[in-house]
Simulated assay, not measured.
Amino acid sequence: MTPSEFGLFLISILGSVAGQWLLKAGALKLGKVNASNLFSHILGIITTPELLAGLTCYGLGAIVYILLLTRVKLSVAGPAVALSYVFSMLLGYFIFREPVPFIRMVGLGLIICGVVLVISKN
């Protein structure tokens, strides 16, 4: 992966992770959904700034990912996107104070090792 391809890859990942963070922040504002508040939650989705910003970040990340796919094989780009799991877990831990069990950390370490192997040249 060339430096410019790696830059596109990182921008795509960061757009996706920013989108996830904003969607979580917006979802916390909405509260839990149930049968009695489903309609108001659907309306809330289109009026909550964090949710709209999160969807925008996802869209921009997808556009950059498409640009990346014009330059990199899907068999490399697809698995490499798994790094978004790592960044999402870090956001959950540091921003939303979600616990991270040891076994999850092991799994994330394996993901990182796998991505390194996938993007490295033979």
Rank of each mutant, 00 (worst) to 15 (best):
I45S: 02
I45W: 09
I46L: 03
P49S: 01
P49C: 01
E50P: 01
A53I: 03
L55W: 00
L55I: 07
T56Q: 01
Y58D: 04
Y58V: 09
G59N: 04
L60M: 11
L60D: 01
G61F: 01
G61V: 00
A62M: 10
A62V: 04
V64D: 05
V64L: 04
Y65G: 00
L68N: 12
L68F: 11
L68E: 12
L69W: 08
R71M: 02
R71F: 00
V72L: 15
L74T: 10
L74M: 13
L74E: 03
S75E: 15
S75V: 14
A77T: 09
A77C: 10
G78M: 14
A80W: 14
V81N: 14
A82K: 07
L83Q: 06
S84F: 08
S84T: 15
Y85M: 15
Y85D: 13
V86R: 12
S88G: 15
M89H: 03
L90S: 10
L90T: 14
L91A: 13
G92S: 12
Y93K: 10
F94I: 02
F94Y: 11
I95M: 01
I95Y: 11
I95Q: 04
R97W: 03
R97N: 10
R97H: 13
E98D: 12
P99R: 06
P99G: 06
V100S: 07
P101G: 09
P101W: 08
F102N: 03
I103A: 04
I103W: 10
I103C: 00
I103F: 12
M105Q: 07
V106M: 05
V106T: 04
V106S: 00
G107Q: 11
L108G: 03
G109K: 06
I112F: 10
G114C: 10
V115P: 00
V116K: 09
V118N: 09
S120L: 13
S120R: 15
